[in-house]
């Protein structure tokens, strides 16, 4: 597995997608920052709080940009072996198909972790530059915890995206799929059903914003079931699929 992970990392050397993902991960902190600059210009006396900046950025990352960005990264990692016609080489080495899949998921997890920490760091940096207020150890630890929990749970939700990529072997259905999910997140953001929709649950769990109508374990069961199902159908399909 170490060798597989090493080779997955090597494949990213000079890959433009890496830079693109950094730009994508910077989008949410920059959008929030620009919003605060605008507010500051209109209401100069009202200070911007670090806690608010972290919370709002995490909301955008987990419900909007992250879903799309991590979906595209998932598609890139799995689809490039088809697009660059390298899968048949790997499978005739031979690399066991499930181990190949797991190594890519591991890399995806590390990549998402890195982007999550990058987003958090960018909020901190922009906040320091712009003079946000209320920075404390508590705010730092709480916000990092929220970002990491949100990122980790978003990772769990990449398995259905992986399945769509493996099934269609094309970026377009994956992008449509993640766009539809993002629309779902937006539609349910203020509804109590957000605690049941697997892709909006990461934000619910990260911020502890459960609703009284549904017990918390509904959310945990929903996200774990969809994640495991996504992994299982991907594994079965990938193991059995002919490589043309």
């Amino acid at each position: 597995m170490v060798d597989l992970l090493y080779t997955e990392l090597l494949k990213l050397k000079r890959a433009k997608m890496f830079l693109v993902s950094i730009i994508g991960a910077a989008a949410a902190p920059l959008m929030i920052f620009i919003g605060y600059l605008d507010r500051k210009a209109k209401v100069p006396d009202e200070p911007v709080q670090f806690a608010d900046a972290f919370t709002e950025t995490n909301l955008y990352v987990v419900l909007l940009i992250g879903t799309l960005l991590y979906g595209v990264i998932t598609a890139y990692l799995f689809h490039r072996e088809y697009a660059e016609d390298t899968l048949k080489n790997l499978l005739t080495i031979p690399v066991p198909r499930i181990r190949l899949m797991v190594s890519k998921l591991l890399l995806l997890f590390l990549w998402m972790l890195m982007l999550t920490l990058f987003s958090w760091s960018l909020v901190l940096l922009l906040g320091l530059l712009a003079g946000y207020e209320g920075l404390s150890i508590g705010v730092v630890t709480d916000s990092i915890q929220q970002f990491l929990i949100g990122g980790a749970l978003l990772f769990l939700m990449t398995t259905p995206t992986m399945f769509v990529t493996l099934l269609f072997k094309n970026y377009v259905p994956t992008i449509i799929f993640t766009a539809a999910i993002t629309m779902g997140n937006v539609a349910l953001a203020n509804s109590e059903y957000r605690v049941l929709f697997p892709w909006s649950i990461p934000h619910v769990i990260a911020t502890g914003s459960f609703v009284s109508q549904y017990p918390a374990y509904y959310s945990y069961i929903s996200i774990i079931a969809v994640s495991l199902l996504g992994f299982a159908v991907s594994a079965i399909y990938f193991k059995r699929a002919d490589v043309g």
Partner: peptide, 23 residues
Amino acid sequence: VEFSGFYENLTARENLMINARLM
């Protein structure tokens, strides 16, 4: 198998390195 697929962002040596590590 038909045309050889490679990681085009890597050099020849780096491409071979992938196979060498996995083999």
